[in-house]
Design a binder for these strands. Sequence first.
DNA 1: GTCTATAACTTGATAGAC
DNA 2: GTCTATCAAGTTATAGAC
Lengths: 200, 200
Amino acid sequence: MPATPENPPTDSVAPAASSTRDRILDAFAELLGEHGERAATLDAVAAAAGVSKGGLLYHFGSKEALIAGVLQRLAELVARDVEAIRASPAGPVAQLIRSSMATGSALDKALVATSRLAQASNSTARDALRAANDAWYQIVLESTGDPVLSRAIMLISDGLAYGSAFLPESMTPETAELTSSDIDDLVDLITEVTAQRSGH
Amino acid sequence: MPATPENPPTDSVAPAASSTRDRILDAFAELLGEHGERAATLDAVAAAAGVSKGGLLYHFGSKEALIAGVLQRLAELVARDVEAIRASPAGPVAQLIRSSMATGSALDKALVATSRLAQASNSTARDALRAANDAWYQIVLESTGDPVLSRAIMLISDGLAYGSAFLPESMTPETAELTSSDIDDLVDLITEVTAQRSGH
DNA sequence: GTCTATAACTTGATAGAC
DNA sequence: GTCTATCAAGTTATAGAC
């Protein structure tokens, strides 16, 4: 993608002036997340992006190309997130847990969309999810130095991510939506356990 | 399960003499789990079950009826599982964690199949998953008496379930497939933390 | 109960006008 | 760059024979 002074900083993740290409990608990810893979047809994506099917296919020549676009976007967002977690003042683990629940960020949307593709038997999507998980696990392991605890932390993170992504609305009292104070409690628990295990 | 050789088990979940109806339901759940919702077409299900499409539609008049069949099967299996967990000598929490990873049991298959449907925007499937989660959470809460810890345990269980269900094969070294000894470590960790928190 | 044939519709993709 | 046909293949469901 040629970036000239006239065609400004074309960061492919979240351009200031959303290009048609990006709108299409947004619409595809959104449909995947909200209504599943089967609903994310070319027709539906085109309509949601405000273009015709022909217009969509000019930018992405096939559905495969559309999928590749989402996966590439995910890879970029994960790379950024990894840096953000590493640089977090609150500590990597707290930052990871707090950012696990899907809140509608670009990364969340890309992750959910990729999960849907992975479950539709797309092995490239599965690989992308694994790569992201590996990166996060590595950070946690470096931070705690404790493999068992690190796994437990990753599983909690996964549980938060999947739960918020897959069972979004109207939960029952028992597993009612986790409030931010619930997350605080969770982080405290993990912090305490981490201190106890490293202290000994 | 009161099943005598003379009176073979005729419950609707997994009859010894698999009826056509059950074979169809098995095939549908299997296809949903292995290849996603989009691949679980009537054609594919019929072929996998060894009947024609017409034959399938004699037993389940529509795709909706097929879905209802899977959800009913799940409800029955969850009810049984709840009883088994409550009666477990090792304690409910250890039993729950150990049974979280999908190992191919009938319950696992029904859960995975229902997850796929839930992600295809089927709200009935979502409700079924929530009901199951509520039941398990209730058991854990009764066992530990500690809401924060119970949530952490449920999240670990969710993480195990989703991970094993959605990223099944060929994992990388970092998050390599959890061995049963890894699970042992995890259960030990949880047991210790539970003891510490209740002891104080 | 199970099959084949077929109707009605959706989906991904191509061709070509503007 | 974006649009409107248009097509071939696939999908759910019905009808009726055996």
